[in-house]
Design a protein around this nucleic acid. Structure first.
Length: 429
RNA sequence: GGAGGGAUGGCAGAGCGGACGAAUGCACGGCUCUUGAAAAGCCGCGAGACCUCGGUCUCCGUGGGUUCGAAUCCCACUCCCUCCGCCA
């Protein structure tokens, strides 16, 4: 969530910034008004509370002095004020809760240099690689679900038999390819990012820190019996790894990478992209994550985008980088770059990475701070996250891009060490 | 799953109804001594909110309760540790 003091001290600035995301100025004005009520109520409660404490101290003094009559009198007075205080307490709690819940669903302020826009159509393509688009032959114009079925490496039917549609089942070299991609990416980031394997089932508080709850309940799988949530991305456990911690500035940035399964109900997109691997309920992903100071954040954002890009380049995929406009930013993000690969078989650009800078929006919910080396008070960290990369769609793009006229698929040389030396998948005899 | 023990500041750890936001140690910051460093000594040092900048309030795992007054007593929950059982 954003800092309520920003609303209080400079509502105009918040209105301008959130206006770029399509938030009505009246919403911000409403928050400012609520904030005034919260502070007034807290003040009333605190004053009464101070009175109770003062009277209680006098009770103790009277007792020590052996003046029981005086003590009884003060006890009665304190009880009366205590009742008022309890009422003021409840009032203050009600308005504070109202403010908190409104603040919880209010999005982050966009970075000044994020492009303006209302929706996906306004995102800015900042570069495409290779600059001259490759040409594709007829052999590559076959959708990956057909290629996968013909080669026996993707079995959507049996996946559906086990779990329903949009739960892929990979076989043979198809499964091995996923394992290779994960190892390839983790090794790629090992120079600067600590490898982590977090749990994939998490508590409600953990989902709240990232902003995935309460706003996106319908998107997440929930295990009712144990009240645990299946993570939609490793960003969720990684953000909460240091929840509540007070770090030393010298330990920043903390950089983490994790390979996990990701689970998404895709409730809002029923019927769209339902074929093959374009949109699935479960997929594997390697995530990059960083906790940093405000000053370190821009360079880290650039580095994380660069890491995702270099993986795509090494995989020989045709990709483009999008600077997301204010209208398409996620709830927690101030700035986001999406990476899309071109999949010739389905003739579509597929989002395979999203690298975001969340400023202190998530850290405020999760209370993650550092003590500055110059001796000042604790400061909230900035969080950054990005996929590098999400494999289901990469798998699709690789299989379509690598397909040859005899039906076999050639995979990039970079993966050879992870595929037991082979880079060719041939049809079953 | 069963039986016990525990959760207090950045860390360790005392306190178990009244001047306790909390002893002490470590860590950290400043100073003295020293050619410099170490050692020693002195001083300072939790976090958050509000604010008339003097103060007020909140926070001792979480949520309830008892009380004039709760870190301290009661109840529930969560987590951690030890032992037993089960298990990849």
């Amino acid at each position: 969530m954003i800092d309520i003091r920003l609303v209080r001290d400079d509502a105009a600035r918040v209105q301008a910034a959130l206006g770029r995301r399509g938030i009505d100025a009246a919403e911000v004005e409403g928050l400012a008004e609520l904030d005034r009520q919260v502070r007034a109520a807290a003040r009333r409660r605190d004053d009464l509370r101070a009175e109770v404490k003062a009277l209680s101290r006098q009770v103790a003094e009277a007792r020590r002095a052996g003046d029981d009559a005086r003590a009884a009198e003060l006890t009665g007075a304190s009880r009366a004020v205590g009742e008022q205080q309890a009422a003021a307490d409840r009032e203050a709690e009600v308005v504070a809760e109202e403010l908190r819940s409104r603040l919880l669903v209010l999005p982050n302020l966009p970075a000044p240099d994020a492009p303006d826009g209302l929706g996906p159509e306004d995102n800015v393509v900042v570069r495409t690689w290779p600059e001259v688009p490759p040409t594709y032959g007829d052999a590559q114009r076959v959708p990956h679900w057909e290629v996968g079925a013909a080669l026996g490496i993707l079995d959507m039917e049996r996946g559906a038999k086990l779990s329903g549609s949009m739960f892929p089942l990979y076989r043979g070299m198809g499964a091995r390819l996923l394992r290779a991609l994960t190892a390839f990416a983790l090794d790629h980031h090992a120079d600067a990012f600590e490898e982590v394997r977090p749990p994939t089932l998490v508590r409600t508080e953990t989902m709240q820190s990232t902003g995935h709850l309460p706003k996106f309940v319908d998107e997440a799988y929930h295990l009712e019996r144990d009240d645990l949530w299946a993570i939609p991305t490793a960003e969720v456990p990684l953000t909460s790894m240091l929840r509540g911690d007070l770090l030393e500035e010298a330990s920043l940035p903390v950089r983490l990478t994790a390979a996990t399964a990701c689970f998404r109900r895709e409730a809002g997109s029923a019927g769209r992209d339902t074929r093959g691997l374009l949109r699935v309920h479960e997929f594997d992903k390697v995530e990059l994550f960083a906790y940093s100071t405000e000053a370190q954040a821009p360079a880290l954002l650039g580095d994380m985008v660069q890491r995702a890009e270099s993986l795509l380049a090494e995989l020989g995929l045709h990709y483009r980088v999008l600077d997301l406009c204010t209208g398409d930013l996620g709830l927690s993000a101030a700035r986001t770059f999406d990476l899309e690969v071109y999949a010739p078989g389905v003739d579509q650009w597929l989002e395979v990475s999203s690298v975001s800078w969340c400023t202190d929006y998530q850290a405020r919910r999760a209370s993650i701070r550092y003590r500055p080396t110059d001796g000042g008070g604790p400061v909230l960290v900035h969080t950054l996250n990005g996929s590098a990369l999400a494999w289901a769609r990469i798998w699709a793009a690789l299989v379509e891009t690598g397909r040859r006229s005899d039906g076999s698929v050639v995979l990039p040389e970079a993966l050879a060490p992870y595929l037991g030396g082979t880079t060719v998948i041939t049809p079953p005899a």
